[in-house]
């Protein structure tokens, strides 16, 4: 049997570091010792495989989880999940969560004095289809203050969580909106050194997928690590 291959490793500048002092919470949480290199063994190239069984019928539509409709700008967020070789990843479980249209999370730890929306929970799930494509319906989240400094505001964003095909492809990230003036001063967004890599976090207004008289669409493709060309050690 051919040796299976491991997964490629991203250039350092294309992922954030652990220590990024402008984001103050990293200071006491980033390891100070160098990471120990781990060869990709069976433990790393396997990983949890979940698909449709984890997704309820309305999990992909965050505007239909309550009796009434949430306030705010209804949007469609769609895109394709693929690996670094451009291969689509079908049946990938995706989880999202976000603030409401006033910039408030439905969460005990969120003290921002903005209103909760009784018709918006802010959590969703879906799976990619056979071509790796996915689609959520939600409302556009707003900016909110977050205490990193006395006048720190997070740009509007939606959290995304994906497993991919292996333990090492696990990705939790955030999607931002094009043209947001807060991006320039957000340390979380700017923690990735490479400017082109940062732009992968910004979705694109998609007038083609917009549904007239109903909702604007944004396209957000997500790229997970792909297989390496060389066999894994062992």
């Amino acid at each position: 049997m051919d040796q299976p291959t491991g997964y490629n490793r991203d250039p350092a500048a294309e992922q954030p570091p652990y220590l990024y002092p402008d984001y103050r919470s990293t200071v006491l949480r980033a390891p100070k010792r160098p990471l120990v290199p781990l060869p990709h063994t069976l433990s790393e190239i396997t990983g949890p495989v979940y698909g449709h069984e984890k997704v309820g019928p309305l999990d992909h539509d965050l505007t239909r989880q309550h009796d009434g409709e949430p306030l705010g700008e209804r949007i469609i967020v769609h895109g394709q999940v693929m690996d670094t070789h451009g291969r689509p990843l079908p049946d990938a479980l995706m989880e999202i969560w976000q603030a409401n249209s006033a910039g408030r999370y439905r969460h005990d730890a969120d003290n921002h004095p903005a209103p909760l929306d009784p018709n918006f929970s802010g959590g969703g799930r879906c799976t990619s289809d056979a071509d790796g494509r996915y689609r959520f319906v939600t409302i556009k989240p707003a900016a909110y203050p977050w205490g990193n400094d006395p006048n720190a505001w997070r740009p509007a964003h939606i959290h995304f969580s994906l497993f991919g095909t292996a333990f090492v492809t696990r990705l939790i990230t955030q999607m931002y909106f094009p043209g947001d003036p807060l991006l320039d001063c957000d340390p979380i967004f700017n923690s990735t050194a490479d400017a082109a890599a940062r732009q992968r976090l910004v979705c694109r207004l998609d007038l083609e997928k917009t549904e007239p008289e109903w909702a604007l669409a944004y396209e957000f493709d997500i790229v997970l690590r792909g297989r390496d060309a060389t066999p894994m050690e062992g």
């Binding site: 991203d10 992922q15 999370y105 959290h159 990705l171 923690s191 890599a197 997970l224």
Partner: peptide, 13 residues
Amino acid sequence: QRGTTPSQTIGPF
């Protein structure tokens, strides 16, 4: 070929 989407913090919520 394309680059991996950067990771971002899970945050507190």
